[in-house]
Simulated assay, not measured.
Amino acid sequence: MSVIAYDSKSHAPSKEKAGAEPTAAEAEEAVRTLIRWAGDNPAREGLLDTPSRVTKAFKEWFAGYAEDPAEVLARTFEEVEGYDDIVVMKDIRLESYCEHHMAPIIGKAHVAYLPDGKVVGISKLARLVDIFGKRLQVQEKMTAQIAQTLDDVLKPRGVAVMIEAEHQCMSTRGIHKHGVDTLTTRFTGVFKDDPAMEARFFRLIGR
């Protein structure tokens, strides 16, 4: 069972700031408050170090806020022996958190672009997915952000992005539906204008 959404709007990476960053002590106290609210005692032995562990985990889970996605793509290469066909990276592991419940979003991304004279190191495509994944997200927005950044920085002839992921805010709470993937896509340039190029992208990623 799959939910398919197509986003046709442009979403540039957000540069908004939420204000002064709380101190580590303030963040840890907030975790203790949540533990008490959940019904447990943050002073018991098993939970004494939990606030520190949680804040350290947050730093890792949401490291994308500290990185500029455009900088990741800044170094490009033009010595590609005339290569002018599609570049595809498929099945990129995706781990994110929904901004509504802060529950995990687990899945994979498929990213493609048609170069216009320059290419970027392939690892940078995976890093781009990680940067946007390691933020509080809505899958539709994340799909658009990845595609828009590639389009803005590389200025290729076209970009294609597809994300398929399971949202644990739906599988572990609320409606409790397991094994449901949400699919989102974003196409620009030739992938948007030429149905044959769109179909070729889907064939290359095995869809």
Rank of each mutant, 00 (worst) to 15 (best):
A20M: 09
E71L: 14
E164P: 05
G46E: 14
D193Q: 10
L204T: 08
Y97N: 12
K118H: 14
V180P: 00
Y83S: 09
T55D: 09
H100T: 07
W37I: 10
P42Y: 09
T143Y: 07
L125R: 01
F62Y: 13
K118Q: 10
E71S: 12
T23Q: 11
D130C: 03
R173A: 08
D193W: 03
L204C: 08
H167Q: 15
E79P: 00
P42W: 11
D40P: 09
S10G: 05
G117I: 07
V138F: 13
V111G: 00
I4H: 06
M170E: 01
K177H: 12
G158I: 07
E71M: 10
D194N: 10
R135M: 02
E28H: 00
V129M: 02
K90I: 11
S8V: 14
E29V: 07
A12M: 14
G174L: 11
A165G: 06
F62L: 11
S171Y: 15
V153W: 05
E28Y: 04
E140C: 13
G19T: 10
R186Q: 03
H11T: 12
D116W: 11
R200Q: 09
A109R: 01
G107D: 05
E198F: 00
Y113E: 08
L204A: 08
K124M: 02
A12P: 07
K59L: 09
K141H: 13
D151L: 02
L183T: 12
S52K: 14
A70H: 13
V111P: 03
D181P: 00
V119M: 15
A30W: 06
V54A: 05
G121K: 06
V129R: 01
V54G: 09
S8T: 13
A160G: 05
Y113D: 06
L183W: 05
P195K: 01
E26K: 08
D193Y: 05
E78H: 08
K192Q: 11
I131R: 01
E26C: 01
L204P: 04
S52Y: 14
L136G: 02
R127W: 10
A144L: 11
L94K: 03
G46I: 06
L128E: 00
P69Y: 07
G206H: 09
K90V: 11
W61G: 11
V87L: 15
V153E: 10
A30D: 04
M89A: 15
G64D: 04
R93K: 15
I205D: 03
I106S: 12
M89G: 13
E166M: 15
C98I: 03
V119I: 15
A57P: 00
H101R: 14
V153P: 08
Y83F: 15
K90L: 15
A25F: 06
E166N: 08
A74C: 09
Y65E: 01
K15Q: 14
F187H: 12
M197P: 05
A147G: 03
I175Q: 09
K59I: 03
A165Q: 11
R93W: 07
